[in-house]
Simulated scan of single mutants.
Amino acid sequence: MATKGELTKTRLVDSMLELIQSRGYAGTGLIAVAEHARAPKGSLYFHFPDGKEALGVAAVDRAADQFHELITAAARDEPTAGGVVRRVVEALAALLEASDFQLGCPVSVVTLEMGADSDLLRQSCAAAFESWISPVAELLVEHGRSDDDARGLATTLVSTVEGASIISRAQRSVVPLLRAGQVLSGLVDAR
């Protein structure tokens, strides 16, 4: 069972993640995070003595873990690589719709806003993207692709889904994301 301190830290990270998704990294202040998490400001500095940057890294890491879990769960349940792609894209489309297109990928947001200013955040974002590319590449190898082909295709898949998610938010429609998923699904299953 988690301690009170661990629960508070989790709430802070979850709040930072949600606020980054809706307001961006630059638009998310520590006071807003503490209020959103219903935590005293002092606990924020206790758990994250290095401040906003450290909390941002924790939020990016949490987002990376969540998306990695989505990929691995889809891979367990789907018999084809294209099926995995479809399931992941459909889940992302559902999240976009459920948030009324307010919540985007926090890793993309942090990369775009802070990648040039904070090497720590840039590295965290790079690691997050890699944590998504690697399991997709492994899945493609399991389905008969060479290592090089799988790596290139996995990078393309993640990049395309990220871009399609941004377009979907801009258009307030999941159609771009779902269309990208259809094309990607066919691409990975084609021989």
Rank of each mutant, 00 (worst) to 15 (best):
I166Q: 03
A126P: 08
R23N: 15
E138D: 12
S118P: 01
V175L: 14
Y25N: 05
S43R: 12
T10W: 01
A190M: 14
F129P: 05
E113M: 06
L19P: 00
M114P: 04
G186I: 06
D65R: 15
G152F: 09
A63I: 01
G5P: 05
A39D: 10
A128S: 12
L55W: 00
M1I: 15
G83S: 13
H47F: 08
R87A: 10
M114H: 07
A37F: 04
G181A: 13
A73I: 09
G104E: 00
R11W: 10
S185D: 00
G181D: 01
A164Y: 00
L92Q: 10
V107L: 03
A126H: 11
T3M: 04
M1L: 14
M1N: 12
R76V: 13
V57I: 11
A81M: 08
L17Y: 03
L120M: 12
D100W: 11
S134C: 11
G51I: 12
D148R: 06
P40Y: 15
S108L: 14
S99D: 12
H47R: 06
A190K: 15
T160Q: 09
G144R: 00
R122C: 04
L184E: 02
V183Y: 13
S43C: 09
G83R: 05
G186E: 08
T111M: 06
T3Y: 02
Q182G: 06
G24T: 03
R122W: 01
V109K: 02
W132L: 11
L120E: 15
G5W: 04
S108Y: 14
G42E: 12
S146L: 11
P135C: 11
S165H: 04
I20E: 05
R11P: 08
P135Y: 09
P49Q: 10
V107P: 00
I71P: 03
A75K: 03
S185W: 05
L157P: 02
F67V: 15
F46H: 08
S15H: 07
I31G: 15
